[in-house]
Design a protein around this nucleic acid. Structure first.
Length: 852
DNA sequence: GCGGATCAC
DNA sequence: TATGGTGATCCGC
């Protein structure tokens, strides 16, 4: 459907939901102020509005508690989180897949456009499809008055009294949709339809084949007699800025729809095709992705007289954003390069991304995050404030990553019916309504031959408060009677609970889930087999080919496409998670099992795993010394990296000559960093300064940027200048802080804007070595790893402090205890040795993350 | 497994 | 007069 997702730097939430703040007031439209006022006048005082306010309060409450959590985050936690996040970031970066060409096709104002096409009377008039209660979509003319999808018709009428509201004709839309899909299938037989008017295609294969196609195979004919006009990027942009211009020449063409061509215009007789007349009306489309998509849109328009917009990008997330960019009747491509992706992402408001809704946007905005670049900059903080699922997802967005395989429609998980009505408070009526809904549901269920075990009743009272009540039974249910038997009891409980007051309902719904039919089992089995096959193939041909295999050969339950949302977890859990060794591999896999945004990531991982298991010798780049290690086994490579991390003291173990060269100059410093930490004063900075972060300005400083925090923590005993002037001081901790500070200042580093930073060598602020890379992400990771040692050391010292120096403040004591416990857990779980004599295990674990 | 919330279309 | 319906996921219990 139309993009109703509007940007909002606006205060009034309700207006936002109405989708108004983006109105570019046309000459005959309304300006934003007026629109907002009309909506508010129509809304204020209603029960609906009351509920909206209530919900808003809840969200604000959530934000407030998030901010409190933020205020308690120590710089140490933040730094540690930064390590973990950047490790994942690097992992993702290494597996970035730019080899697919994904297209998102979106019909312009679909329902409204169909209605206009079929009723010339509506041409040039503001129309909307829907009812007085709710609009599904509006045409662009109506949008100038602020009339949007998801707006009640009666409010739309106030905004635009001339508005014509057309009742929806879903059968018709389905038929048109089918026509469009027939075209799409020619470019990707496995395309994924999101809805009647939206679909994703993977045209990678089509593009390959198309390269060898003769012109004739790419020639299309226009029977309308209109001079064929192929979009040029510039023209598109111009046309779009002109609100007054007709949106589609064909859509607004005078010729009645009957005269529009039906079927594929390509299907012409040879004679017809070769006649000069016809050739004049023909176009040849090129072989590039852009040309393919122009061709698709051209054919859609020829066939349906409707226009579509499209986005082309290396993954679905980006393609979707792109299709919105030059809407209506336009297209936009992000070329398949990392730089292009990052340039595009940089200033992209996060709200544009599918999955970031109103609430998430508001929460992130409270953290000062509006654009994707800001999302990237705050990645460490986000990993502490949000659930794993969420921050992983955020990180993907921030790196411009998304799914490259279009999962086929999976098994249905639930089926439901619900209805809104004018108030019903009579209990008998409510039961009989419930029964009707069950009958309907049973009917739908039967059509798909499904049986379920969980029945959920949904109730909305006249104040718009929603309640759901569910019950799972042992036997499978499919008939109306069976379902009603369960639903009735659920309803009864609610009725009784409210008694003696009646339930004043405005909506009732019945849902059934927990399906357990044979089909589902069959699919699952096939899924497992397919999975194994895919794994085997991946072994022989690792990398992006896995996507294709997955797509065509198996669909796992977890592959089912779905939308996602994000909730924050309990702070304690999150923090303790981060206090543990950053074990990305464990963490990731759990998240990947269920969360859609990471399907792509999981695939990459799978292919990594298989290539690892195959134990092939490969070429790796050491994240510490950045030397390429050719033809080594993973194990050998890990040893090398360990050696790099450990410094020269253990470097004899390493058989990689390049390493010793690289690190020879830094050897002394690294030794210092590991072993010559003054016992207390440098290390118990946590007690003094970090506590102060909890104070009044803590909320500000911690979240605003890492800079503030690390400056704070460094502040007590060591000024930044002191250390930047003397970076090779013997105390590692201020040094580490300094490094973090520098990194934070580079936060403004958009690691991805340039693939290559020219003319300037990157020198690690920790080991002081010039790095053989120009990639800022890689560089950051290197610094992180260097820093890691400092942090390990901090932990050790904290532990020591907690034993030797009991604190008077119970708060501090608690904290230290926590720190001690943390260290202990680390020891147990990761064999993180606290003995300096034994070889530290931690780097190994740290690095395993890269390759597992 | 349940219930509330979020999100998309 | 009047603010939808369907499906999915996530999170905290």
């Amino acid at each position: 459907m139309d993009n109703t997702k509007e940007k909002n730097n606006c205060k009034d939430d309700l207006l936002l939901r109405m989708g108004l703040n983006d109105n570019k007031a046309g000459m005959e439209g309304l300006d934003k102020e007026k629109i907002n006022k009309i909506i508010m006048d129509a809304t204020k005082g209603s029960r609906f509005y009351g509920n909206e306010l209530k919900k808003e309060k809840q969200v604000n409450q959530r934000i407030e508690s998030m901010m409190q959590q933020k205020a308690q985050i120590t710089s140490q936690q933040l730094r540690k989180a930064q390590l973990q996040v950047d490790r994942l970031a690097m992992d993702l970066e290494r597996n970035r897949n730019l080899n697919n060409t994904i297209v998102h096709v979106d019909m312009d104002a679909f329902y409204a456009a169909v209605e206009m096409r079929d009723n010339p009377e509506l041409k040039d008039k503001p129309i909307a499809v829907g009812s007085m209660s709710m609009l599904s979509t509006s045409n662009y003319h109506a949008r100038r008055f602020g009339v949007r999808a998801a707006m009640p018709g009666f409010i739309a009428k106030r905004l635009c009294p001339q508005l014509i509201i057309v009742p929806p004709n879903f059968d018709k839309y389905r038929a048109v949709s089918k026509e469009v899909k027939e075209i799409l299938a020619e470019y990707d037989p496995n395309f994924m339809a999101v809805s009647l008017d939206e679909a994703y295609l993977n045209i990678t294969q089509h593009l390959e084949e198309r390269q060898s196609w003769p012109e004739d195979k790419r020639r299309y004919f226009s029977k309308t007699g209109n001079p064929i006009k192929i979009d040029k990027p510039g023209e598109e942009a111009n046309r779009l800025s002109e609100d007054e211009q007709p949106i589609s020449p064909l859509l607004f063409e005078d010729s009645p729809p009957d005269l529009q061509p039906h079927g594929n215009p390509f299907q012409l007789n040879p004679e017809e095709r070769n006649s000069p007349q016809t050739l004049q009306n023909s176009v040849v489309f090129g072989t590039s992705a852009e040309e393919v998509v122009k061709e698709i849109r051209f054919r859609i328009e020829q066939k349906t007289t409707l226009t579509a917009s499209a986005g082309i990008a290396p993954n679905t997330m980006l393609a979707k954003v792109c299709s919105d960019k030059n809407k209506p009747n336009g297209q936009y491509q992000i070329p398949p390069s990392r730089k292009a992706v990052m340039d595009f992402i940089k200033d992209l408001p996060i709200r544009k991304v599918s999955g970031i809704g109103k609430v998430t946007e508001k929460m992130l905005m409270a953290l000062g995050i509006v654009t994707c670049m800001e999302l990237y900059q705050q990645r460490a903080l986000l990993s502490l404030l949000f659930s794993e699922t969420s921050w992983h997802y955020f990180l993907h967005i921030a790196l411009g990553l998304g799914s490259t395989n279009l999962a086929r429609d999976g098994e249905r998980k639930s089926m439901s019916v619900e209805r809104t009505f004018s108030e019903i408070s009579n209990t008998e009526e409510q039961y009989s309504l419930c029964q009707e809904l069950c009958t309907e549901l049973a009917h739908d269920l039967q059509k798909e031959g499904l049986k379920g075990r969980t029945v959920t009743v949904k109730l909305k009272n006249v104040d718009f408060e929603v309640k759901t009540r569910a019950s799972t039974v042992l036997s499978t249910l499919s008939t109306a009677e069976e379902i009603f038997a369960v639903a009735k009891e659920l309803l009864r409980t609610e009725v009784n609970a409210a008694s003696p007051h009646p339930l004043r309902l405005r909506l009732m719904g019945v849902r059934i889930s927990t399906f357990s039919n044979k089909d589902a089992k069959k699919h699952q089995q096939r899924g497992i087999i397919g999975f194994l096959q895919a794994g085997q193939r991946a072994l022989s041909s690792p990398g992006c080919s896995v996507d294709r295999i997955d797509k065509t050969e198996f669909v796992k339950p977890s592959e089912i496409p779905h939308k996602k949302s994000f909730f924050d977890k309990k702070r304690s859990e999150r923090l303790s998670n981060h206090q543990d060794t950053p074990r990305c591999e464990v963490v990731n896999q759990r998240a990947l099992q269920t969360s859609q945004p990471f399907r792509a990531f999981r695939k990459m991982r799978e292919s990594l795993e298989t290539s690892e298991n195959s134990n092939n010798c490969q070429t790796f780049t050491c994240p510490v010394c950045f030397r390429e290690q050719e033809g080594v086994s993973l194990e050998a490579f890990n040893e090398h990296v360990d050696a790099c991390l450990d410094g020269p003291s253990t470097s004899e173990d390493s058989k990689m000559p390049s390493y010793s060269q690289a690190s020879s100059t830094a050897a002394g410093q690294k030794e210092d960093a590991s072993h010559s930490i003054p016992p207390c004063e440098h290390c118990d900075y946590e007690d003094g300064e970090v506590e102060s972060v909890d104070g009044a300005d803590g909320a500000e400083t911690v979240g605003q940027s890492l800079t503030a925090v690390s400056a704070d923590t460094t502040g007590s005993n060591h000024s930044k200048e002191e250390h930047s002037d003397a970076p090779d001081q013997s105390c590692p901790i201020p040094l580490a802080n300094e490094a973090v500070r520098m990194l934070s200042e580079q936060e403004s580093i958009w690691p991805c804007t340039d693939d290559v930073v020219t003319g300037q060598a990157l020198v690690c602020p920790v080991c002081n070595l010039e790095q053989k890379t120009s990639d800022l992400t890689l560089f950051n990771v290197h610094v992180d790893i260097c820093l890691n040692k400092g942090i390990i050391q901090e932990l050790r010292n904290n532990e020591a402090n907690s034993v030797s120096q009991p604190k008077e403040s119970s708060r501090s004591a608690g904290r230290l205890q926590k720190a001690a416990g943390r260290t202990k857990r680390l020891g147990q779980r990761t064999k993180w040795s606290t003995s300096k004599k034994t070889k530290p295990q931690s780097p190994r674990h740290t690095l395993d993350v890269f390759f597992k």
